[in-house]
Design a protein around this nucleic acid. Structure first.
Lengths: 194, 194, 194, 194
DNA sequence: ACCAGCGGGACGCCCCGTTTCT
DNA sequence: AGAAACGGGGCGTCCCGCTGGT
């Protein structure tokens, strides 16, 4: 079935609309009526693009992999720089890209309900640990600290800021993450770098 | 009054059971049937203790204030020590006390859905900012850093670790928070403290 | 859970109401709203007694076995007499007992859709074949005819009459089956019996 | 006009495809998507040939009259012979011609749901009664039996066999009907014909 | 009296027959 | 002609009164 251009556009809009609802209300509390209303469509029309509510969520979650792909302009950069870019862009996209925000919430809800580790988080942690190790070898990060703890800290920061962003009205989340990174810089450099 | 004592006990057990479900599935996806089954009661019996599902949630949320009350043995301690205790105990209780874990999730869901700042988070942030300022005056924390950014970082860490705890199978969350605090110590002390 | 008397009564009434709808409209075209309306209940109330539409159908089908159980007053009777009773009572109950009528339709629809042989029909045919053989040994039925063909004929008659009963406005179906049996009697007795 | 010829062919194929689905699932449980898929068309294309689902069913039912038309080679035959041909060909076509099978099911469902006598059954019964009477006058059938009961029996047999055909895996239905007719022959001939 | 259990009402997802655009 | 959209339910499910057994 060769999809028509309009259908493709509707599909993308539907994904955005669903992401906005999922991000706000979670999977279970989102109803397709609200999504359809956002789109100016009917529920039945949604069914032409997705076969179930779960499929919509799965599509959004599948796009999460993008945020882990090495940033295009990151090649050739030192590891500590790529680490900075990853952490900051993560905080940025979670807050600004509704699809990423929704996907993160969906993954989290699923993980809480089933108790299983989502593939995304495992890969994220592995990526960060590896970057930290690499940066330590390159001298960009103090090698005397355990890489795992550093990685946990660097992952916890953007998610933690996102998690409590409501406390400050979601005001300039990426800016605050950047400021935190500035705080952490001497810590990463190590005691001698002061 | 043994009758009232049993009722009181059932009430507490119901709160625990509800908390376990809320923590796992969130408010909307928790059904009272599961809670009643956990208790060995019927749904109707629950309504003898609570007038609605929302009331159960409200009771749990109301208990959240306890975690902000100054730790009993914290009086007379320096501010940076009380800060440490607050952050670590927060991470600890979120993970170990089902009621706190449930309340945190409920508050968060409410905040996401309505877009309003929960009172709990505002107070938490105020408390931490104040403690940081106090510690800076006492010399326990480097005064050259902005207190707000430091506070945001210190709040983000326990929540961030909690948020991504599923990635590591919830293994020793408090221990990892303590390790992170160890990492952050020199940062807090300031460059000259090395 | 000790069911209360009223619940038990509601359960039976629900089964009857559902049977009436199933018998008239088939499984797929029956909606629980109509069943509930018949009962003066709501759909939600039905859910307290059955967990799904399919379960209601299953309950009705399960009762079909009763019509195959040897008639209580049939013991000691000659086989050809019990055969007569079985065929006539079958036609009778299909037409008069809504539950049996519904179950027969449900079984038939299922068989048509899946292409599999329902257990009920297999047992019915086996029973009739066996009774025919026994009657032939006892001399009640002409032994020179193949038992299978006789059995098929004797099974086809009540179902066929039921199937086309609409052509005559369901007028006195059992009576007509009895008349047919009268016609078939000399056939069964054999040529010499005239 | 090859274009119209192809449309005509598609129309016939659509009727066959719909008949196959109607025969298997009944009217209400048949969805046009399955019919369209069978044809390699889309649902919308079906609406170029039929204006509604009901119209498709109506077309199939309308063709039912054909099976009542006197068999072309039956002219000049004695009535009891034409009766035999009618009964056997009826059983044959119901089982082998999907359109007839579907139409019979559709007519039956309609009759059950509305409680009205379908025209087809009335005409079938009239035809058979008349043929029986004629055969009795011609001496082909024992005149001492009531024609109506004989006709009911002769109609019930093919439909009854069809109805329970699932019990024997639809194995050689026409053959079994022929065998039954053989059994019934002496009955029809009367006692003196032995 | 009291509480389990029965029933009510509402709605969410899914699905389908049908019409409207492209 | 075919894809996209529409609108109307159907089943399942849930939260919650109300009432009849104990």
């Amino acid at each position: 079935m060769p999809k028509q251009a309009r259908a493709r556009r509707t599909y993308e809009l539907a994904l955005d609309a669903a992401a906005a609802e999922f991000s706000r209300h979670g999977f279970g509390n989102t109803n397709l009526q609200m999504v359809a209303t956002r789109l100016g469509l009917t529920k039945g029309a949604l069914y032409g693009h997705f076969s179930s509510k779960e499929e919509i969520a799965a599509r959004l979650v599948a796009e999460l992999d993008d945020v882990l792909r090495p940033l295009p302009d990151g090649a050739g950069q030192p590891a500590h720089r790529r680490l900075h870019d990853l952490v900051v862009s993560l905080a940025d996209r979670i807050e600004r890209d509704v699809r990423v925000g929704a996907a993160v919430r969906l993954v989290w809800e699923e993980a809480r309900a089933t108790g299983e580790q989502p593939a995304f988080w495992r890969r994220l942690r592995e990526t960060v640990v590896q970057l930290v190790r690499q940066a330590q070898q390159e001298g960009g990060i103090d090698a005397s600290r355990p890489a795992e703890t550093l990685a946990d800290l660097l992952v916890a920061v953007p998610f933690g800021v996102h998690y409590v962003a409501g406390a400050t009205g979601h005001a300039d989340v990426p800016g605050r993450v950047r400021a935190m990174w500035g705080l952490l810089t001497p810590l990463l450099r190590g005691p001698g770098a002061a």
